[in-house]
């Protein structure tokens, strides 16, 4: 609502007013990265939203075969996916613990938390690659079926975002370390943690979608008007 109030002001009246608005960065050095992160998460959401919409639309063509639901389909037993999800969730948890420690200025614990988060994130990527290899040994290649194509595509795009998060995290930790200001770690780490949780949320959504039975997919597609 504040936005609408702002749009309602009449700037030609009261020319004497020197507003305190502006130079937010002087007050809060994290203001800019926080805003940027919000936009990044918005963009990534749009990206996955569009992928998912196309998935639902494509699912209504006759050659589409869901990945789960019948015994011969690759994710009729989704235990591997559950394992990978658990690994990513551990990464998120470790990150949160690291942040919690950083806020209490327990630097050593924070470092342990971040290291564990990185370890589990890398483990998640390796496990996803292993899952790809497993699918291929079962004969499910990228172009075997549109649902398979989407599985490889969506996991790849999600994995790239995890990789991007790892690079930013490395940059953050290196910079804070280099400046010798570990006490100030919690600010930027908050943003990294938000991103970590966000990617976990995206993954859960993808997991649910990709392992849905054909009836569920058809219902979602019908809700979207396909």
């Amino acid at each position: 609502m504040r936005f609408f109030k702002t749009l309602g002001t009449k700037p030609w009246l009261d020319p004497t007013m020197v507003s305190t608005a502006g130079v937010a960065l002087a007050v809060d050095p994290l203001a800019a990265p926080r805003t940027a992160l919000r936009f990044i998460m918005g963009m990534v959401s749009v990206l996955f939203f569009l992928f998912i919409i196309t998935f639902l639309s494509r699912s209504q063509y006759p050659d589409f075969q869901a990945l789960a639901g019948q015994p011969w389909q690759p994710f009729s037993d989704p235990s591997r996916l559950w394992l990978n999800t658990a690994i990513l969730a551990l990464s998120s948890l470790a990150m949160h613990w690291g942040l919690w420690s950083a806020r209490r200025e327990q630097v050593n614990r924070a470092v342990v938390g971040i290291s564990a988060a990185v370890f589990f994130a890398v483990a998640f990527l390796v496990a996803q690659l292993e899952l790809w290899r497993h699918l291929q040994t079962m004969g499910y290649y990228v172009n075997t079926n549109p649902a398979n194509s989407y599985f490889y595509l969506l996991t790849a795009v999600h994995g790239l975002h995890v990789l991007g998060g790892l690079m930013v995290l490395a940059n953050v930790v290196f910079r804070v370390w280099y400046d010798g200001a570990m006490a100030r770690l919690s600010g930027p780490l908050t943003l990294c943690t938000h991103y970590w949780h966000f990617l976990l949320g995206v993954w859960l959504l993808l997991f649910a979608l990709l392992t849905s039975r054909v009836e569920t997919i058809n219902m979602l597609a019908a809700l979207c008007g396909f």
Partner: peptide
């Protein structure tokens, strides 16, 4: 990202959005 963040967060004193 630079353009939107700069507009939202780096305006000088008195530079309201309107």
């Amino acid at each position: 990202l630079n353009y939107v963040t700069t507009v939202l967060q780096a305006r000088t004193h008195g530079m309201t959005l309107m």
